[in-house]
Design a protein around this nucleic acid. Structure first.
Length: 601
RNA sequence: CGGGACGUGGCGCAGCCAGGUAGCGCACCUGCUUUGGGAGCAGGGGGUCGCCGGUUCAAAUCCGGCCGUCCCGACCA
């Protein structure tokens, strides 16, 4: 390469660098000389793979954005990488705006650092583990609290605080069930940031700063993310908020109040329940025969039974190896995450029928907690103070009536265990809650001092007292956010990318490559758009117009400029992907027009 | 890990029950025609039928084992 050409390349990168509103990690991608469709690798498919279910999965594959390598591992093709980069850069900008500093940490970690935090033993099989040639244990990072905290040990004075550090790095998680294309994978890019503060007040501030930054980021991605109270799961800590995008392709349910005053993951959500009238005076505990009754519904109608809301449902669970009875109202559902959070159990499973038979003496359907000794019994708040209830008697075909829960059952702990249902009154305003299926695109945690204490990251405060650093951790899944955008923004013809993340801002479709005037018009608009810094794709393939239109719509480019019969009048057509609205503009005006439209969006 | 389905050219599928030449549509290559909404005709290339073993003269097909993928449940960005 001649030196002047190399210099020209360098200049181009520099211009992009300065023009960008924020730093780009990769500045040279798609440099304008490779935007002719005929030269690009954009393998579109007419049919989606048979095993694709989610809209984003089908369309990202059909549009030539991604290809599966194996379960939970996807290759990003050039189009997919362009979108992924844009999502990354929007996230990066959002982080830079709150003063976060970008790092890049190793993806592979020594076991020792996870042993020091205690998570080598606690996280289980979702961590990929391997050995090197020396048989030393290693892990592929599923998150980076340990490594960032290790670096934070070099913070020794409160005067260095607060700090916010972040990276965009590949995470590895051996998901039990990868699914739905990029929505749930085993290898994915995540923006993870970490805040370091002297105390809880500082953490609260960093947390609220992140919450606001996340809402800005998701708005720029055209995602209507709802911030909800969440369970903290594996991360631990004192509080967490998830960012949820409503979509039937999601895997989480949230409950939210119609007026927006309350929103929580169903793993955390509560509601205000009307009190139940347990009737007349407390009656005697009566054991009565119930031949063949095995269900809540069955016990409602049998002689001596009771309506579901006046029954006790007894769920026999095994928590970290110990059999536990979890009690909820007959018409309520036990939420397993609430049980885990409330009891602190790491491993939860329902007891096998054989186990319940051996320990309690009956099969599921006739189980109860009356008179049970030696097992932990936890009960939902909705059962507190209740009496005249029906429940199983731990003998097949026998139940109790007249159960007074405080008198007859030795409850060890009262917990929030029940899952809310749609229509129940909001705890804040009493209006009905709705339950909405969502994709979790972000999650922020107040970690507290747990990692700093375990790893030995502390500072001296103004009084010269050594104090562990108070931390928060904050994640956004890049590929998941990309898939969520696809999930929300598509129609029956294909993807409809918002301009901010579209692989190209515009596509010029030459209706026929044999129409010299059309070709000349297209080349002119192409040059002019490039001069204006617009990423534009020139569809110069020698294909029929219908094929090109269909492909342009499938890959979801926001603006299409059609160079065809209008060229004879000195015009091209301008079509909005989202609406299909088309109008004619002069060939020489088209570039300015499209550049302005993209700048507005 | 429990339940269900499925592995046949790049994608979508048939063939398997009744063992015997691997087939169709899309895509791809060549030629001619066509050219503003996934063209037509003609010719052509491409498949260890997931893997291993067994039965058989002969296995995509029958039997056994394994692997993989997808969907529904328990977990997470």
């Amino acid at each position: 390469m001649h030196h002047w050409l190399r210099w020209a390349r360098y200049e181009m990168v520099e211009v992009r660098f300065r023009r960008g509103r924020f730093r780009r990690r990769r500045s040279g991608r798609g440099d304008g000389r490779t935007m002719r469709w005929s030269k690009l690798f954009i393998p579109t498919l007419r049919d989606a793979p048979a095993d694709a279910e989610a809209a984003s999965h089908k369309l990202l594959v059909r549009g030539g954005f991604i290809r599966q390598l194996h379960a939970g591992h996807y290759s990003l093709l050039p189009l997919g990488l362009r979108v992924h980069d844009k999502v990354e850069n929007i996230v990066r900008q959002g982080m830079e705006e709150i003063g976060a500093q970008e790092f890049l940490l190793p993806a592979m970690h020594p076991a020792s650092i996870w042993q020091r935090s205690g998570r080598w033993g606690s996280v289980g099989p979702e961590m990929f583990r391997l050995q090197d040639r020396k048989e030393a244990d290693l892990a592929l990072g599923m998150t980076h609290e340990e490594v960032f905290t290790e670096i934070a040990r070099e913070i020794t004075s409160y005067r260095t605080l607060p700090q916010i550090w972040y990276q965009i790095q590949w995470k590895f998680r051996d998901e039990p069930r990868p699914k739905s294309g990029l929505l749930r994978v085993r290898e994915f890019a995540m923006k993870d940031s970490y805040s370091f503060d002297l105390d809880d007040t500082g953490l609260d501030h960093a947390f609220e700063t992140h919450r606001a930054a996340y809402l800005r980021i998701f708005e720029r991605l055209s995602l209507d993310a709802i911030a909800v109270q969440a369970s903290s799961g594996m991360m631990g800590g004192t509080g967490s908020v998830e960012f949820m995008v409503p979509s039937p392709a999601g895997e989480d349910d949230i409950a939210r109040c119609v007026d927006g005053s309350y929103a929580a993951n169903v793993e955390r959500a509560t509601s205000k329940l009307p009190p139940v009238d347990d009737g007349e005076a407390r009656s005697e505990l009566v054991r009565f025969p119930t031949p063949g009754v095995r269900t809540i519904a069955g016990l409602e109608t049998v002689e001596g039974g009771a309506p579901a809301h006046r029954q006790i449902k007894t769920m026999v669970m095994v928590l970290d190896g110990a059999m536990t009875l979890a009690l909820v109202r007959g018409d309520h559902q036990l939420n397993l995450q609430k049980l885990a959070d409330g009891t602190g159990a790491a491993d939860i499973r329902p007891a096998e029928p054989a186990e319940t038979l051996e320990r309690l003496g009956a099969h599921p359907g006739s189980l109860g907690a009356v008179g049970v000794e030696g097992l932990r019994i936890v009960a939902d708040h909705a059962l507190r103070g209740r009496y005249n209830l029906a429940t199983g008697a731990n003998t097949d075909d026998w139940h109790y009536s007249g159960v007074d829960i405080e008198r007859d059952i030795s409850v060890d702990e009262w917990l929030d265990l029940r899952e809310v249902s749609a229509g129940e009154p909001c705890v804040n305003c009493g209006q009905p809650l709705e339950v909405v299926r969502c994709i979790e695109t972000g999650h922020i945690f107040k970690l507290g001092r747990r990692y700093a204490e375990a790893m030995g990251a502390s500072v001296l405060d103004a009084d010269g007292v050594e104090r562990p650093i108070t931390m928060g951790s904050y994640g956004i899944g890049i590929g998941r956010a990309m898939a969520a955008v696809a999930e929300v923004h598509h129609d029956d013809r294909g993807l409809v990318w918002p301009a901010a993340v579209a692989p190209y801002g515009a596509v010029i479709t030459v209706a026929s490559m044999r129409d010299d005037r059309a070709v000349a018009a297209a080349e002119q608009v192409y040059r002019e758009l490039q001069a204006r810094g617009v990423e534009v794709l020139l569809d110069d393939r020698d294909a029929r117009a219908g094929v090109k239109f269909a492909d342009a719509e499938l890959i979801g480019i926001p603006w299409r400029i059609t160079a065809g019969r209008a060229a004879a009048d000195g015009e091209v057509e301008l079509t909005a992907r989202a609406t299909g609205d088309t109008r004619r503009v002069g060939i020489s005006d088209a570039a300015a027009e499209v550049a302005a439209l993209l700048a507005d969006s």
